[in-house]
Design a protein around this nucleic acid. Structure first.
Lengths: 213, 213
DNA sequence: CTCATGCCTCTACACTGTAGATCTATACGG
DNA sequence: CCGTATAGATCTACAGTGTAGAGGCATGAG
């Protein structure tokens, strides 16, 4: 019966996909559903509720997209698959950026996501007392990456340090000078993301090896 | 001459501090400056320009707040001091959350920030080819943390897993069960942030030890 | 004095979220 | 069949938003 709510969310997500978050107004969503704006309120509460629900829906998609996620035997691969799934999804729906950091992860789907990472960390042998913290560390990084990429913080392609240099405040940029050769060439973001995950996996292993509850 | 721009930004930041980002409208800022809304346009371009400038101003404060940052000898302490400074600042101006991920870091202050981390990583002995990537990893984590904290993703105080459990989708939450004791007690966010930094520092050391360009 | 330049103001427009009151269609008990 | 309760949609209105466009006004130059 409450298919109406789903219909509304579908419409809202569709609008956000093609016109951006700013294009999502009560009026535009209502029109897409074929209804007056005020008719949405019983279903989603208010505008904030609508946005929350949109975020929840996207989180849920992480599973729908990779249903066998929990069955991957190696925890490393599980973390990687999860990360890739989330990243791919966010690239398809860049508007999550604006929503990701707004509310604690309390929807059922979000909790399930967290549990998935808990299990991976436990499988890795991380002391139980460190698991919740490490889950937050890893997911904070992932969220940061996803938001940076979708939101445009990373810029696009080569970074052109000389361009940056133009409006230099004052004093030299020693660090930039030292790594200039690697700044000059364009960045392969897919590869970089994988390498980051490798480093995080290594970090997890280190913590597991150190042991002690 | 362009003290008017500074005056406008001061007013905008002040409003954001006390009334939130939503309270920053062209009209409210204009009124605070004692001018009509349209008078702002020559100075800041448009609303987006105003917001960008506000973000830039806050980034600049990182240095003003910890001027001796570059002189800390141990790179570990430098990373930690930087992180703490940024976190403290963001907690005082929680509205940055909405802005942090919107634009690439190209303002002079932002570039200087990046350079600071480059130098720390070089001091740590990280292979030069890895420095830019690792800088992004570390700052992505920091931004993610800051945004999570200021934006409310972490919730407040204890997490109360039983509360989360209430609207459980279906199937058990094995991971949550396993770490329940540590979920039950409240989180010391200051301590957690420090521990995270420790882990990141360790990760950097591992990468430095592995060596090879 | 005349004129130009740069900053400001005023008005207006199309849009936003949503409170409040009203209307309507469906389902149910008799 | 009727009358009524209930849940949902609707209409109107309000206070707020960003900003295009045209006009005003005070300063300094020739």
């Amino acid at each position: 019966m409450s298919g109406k709510r789903e219909e509304i969310l579908d419409a809202a997500v569709a609008i956000a996909d093609e016109r951006g978050l700013a294009g999502v107004s009560m009026r535009s969503v209502a029109q897409a559903v074929g209804v007056t704006p005020m008719a949405l309120y019983p279903h989603v509460g208010d505008k904030a509720g609508l946005l929350d629900a949109m975020l929840g829906r996207l989180l849920g998609m992480v599973f729908r997209t990779a249903p066998a996620l929990a069955d991957v035997s190696d925890w490393r691969d599980r973390v990687r698959l999860f990360a890739h799934t989330a990243r791919t999804l966010a690239k398809g729906h860049p508007w999550v950026t604006g929503l990701l950091f707004s509310r604690p992860a309390v929807t059922p789907d979000a909790v399930t996501t967290v549990d998935l990472l808990y299990l991976a960390l436990l499988d890795a042998g991380v002391p139980k007392s460190h698991v919740p913290r490490l889950e937050r560390l890893v997911s904070t990084y992932m969220l940061g990456w996803i938001a940076s990429e979708a939101g445009g913080r990373f810029g696009s392609g080569a970074l052109d340090p000389r361009g940056r240099r133009g409006q230099l405040p004052d004093g030299a940029l020693e660090g930039h000078d030292a790594v200039m050769p690697w700044l000059a060439q364009p960045v392969d973001w897919d590869a970089e993301f994988d390498r980051d995950l490798d480093d995080l996996v290594t970090m997890i292993e280190t913590l597991a090896a150190k042991g002690q509850e």
